[in-house]
Design a protein around this nucleic acid. Structure first.
Lengths: 225, 225
DNA sequence: CCAAAAGTGTTAGGAGTACACCCATGG
DNA sequence: CCATGGGTGTACTCCTAACACTTTTGG
């Protein structure tokens, strides 16, 4: 057996928020191994294609979305992870803003569905491990980057934002402390508009302003909730 | 061109400390492309071998060391990174305790040498980028993990430890603040012994005690120098 | 007027930072 | 006795965490 026999795939863990819950996109496998099991969307890397291009391609094939947050997660290469042979996968994770996403019908996967991260089905291959790792990374990044904002639409309320943090960290956060911290960070601009639908009292809408953020990392101001 | 034409390598960025300076191990290439250039040690992953096994194998081939700190860094897969074709590499970084390391003569690399991270030669492929990324990761990890201790022998003085932090972060740290923080973390046990050689006054030796550390991460006590 | 989510301030404790002098030893 | 690196404490600032009530609206 020579080195040429190793094959390379990318798998993309796609997160979003729905009803204040962290969701992940899974596809049902149509062929063996693990036929009919749920799996993280992914596929083989093509010759001449970068890893990130391959991940973006898989992402668009499944969801039709472009221009979203994408980050390399980790590479998994245990030779026994795929019964068909030695398949190394480079895992990515992607964040989609809360809201309806049209899932595409594809040739590869008959079915694609969002699952709550806290209610996962049995997964194919080592995909459960990949998902656990992705969640851990997302939790860590929440504390020192602005990934939290990537999961919201352009305009959102402070309560929306707090719910994102609570859903991912799986714990309650004090409302006053949360708002004070966000105010201190100065990465939010209040909009003229308010949200009124379904609310007893209108809630101010905000927008994330990325350019202000870079300096904060150097100043050590973070999000340690 | 099919997916089978992508080849997979591992490259291992091997750091150590010498004379209070952060050093990295490089090998001189004996064949094209980039013949005679310096490069990060690495090689093809073998079928049936895990990525970590491959990294450990390369590490041992170059240095003869085992049982050292090894962590996956990132995967680089730009199709133009190797002129011979599409070669994806999974980069690792390894930390070797300060002290003399016997570098092995190998078939692949005629020459292997330690270089100061601040005085690097021109490197083959995209290895400069990999090295920059490894240094960034090392700096970040220094602040919230115990990687700093991996670069020292079992017994060390507080000044030794401070020099490691200073070498990696490339800045002076206040001695009193550094020592107070280390005392607060309670991960060091003083030994009975002192170091006397070459010192005006003997310096207490310490040992790192890993078991005490895990809880600190949860408590949010870190190393933000 | 009642229910429900929006919005707001204070206090106490702990970590970070800046800063200067005495101590022990070898030559 | 002197040069050299080892070793120690204090004051201030700032962030964190805990905690409860008033406001605005729709029904």
């Amino acid at each position: 057996m020579g080195p040429g026999e190793i094959r390379l795939t990318v798998d993309v863990v796609i997160f979003t928020i729905q009803s204040h819950r962290l969701m992940v996109l899974l596809v049902r496998r149509r062929s063996p191994p693990f036929q009919d099991s749920w799996a993280i969307p992914g596929g083989f890397v093509r010759t001449g294609e970068s890893l990130e291009q391959a991940a973006l391609r898989e992402l668009e094939e499944e969801t039709g979305v472009k221009d979203i947050y994408l980050e390399q997660l980790y590479s998994f290469g245990d030779p026994s992870r795929d019964p068909r042979g030695h398949v190394v996968t480079v895992a990515y994770f992607a964040l989609i803003a809360a809201g309806p996403v049209r899932l595409r019908a594809t040739a590869d996967a008959a079915e694609a569905r969002w699952f709550e991260m806290s209610k996962l089905p049995k997964l194919a291959f080592d995909h459960r491990r990949i998902l656990d790792y992705a969640l851990e990374r997302l939790r860590n990044k929440l504390e020192y980057t602005t990934v939290g904002f990537q999961l919201l639409p352009q305009a959102f309320t402070l309560t929306d934002l707090q719910r994102v943090y609570e859903a991912i960290l799986n714990k309650k956060i004090d409302k006053r402390n949360f708002r004070r911290k966000m105010a201190l960070l100065k990465v939010l601009t209040p909009l003229r508009a308010y949200r009124t639908e379904g609310l007893p009292r209108p809630a101010r809408l905000y927008r994330f302003v990325a350019r202000k953020f870079e300096k904060l990392k150097d100043k050590g101001i973070l999000f340690p909730f």
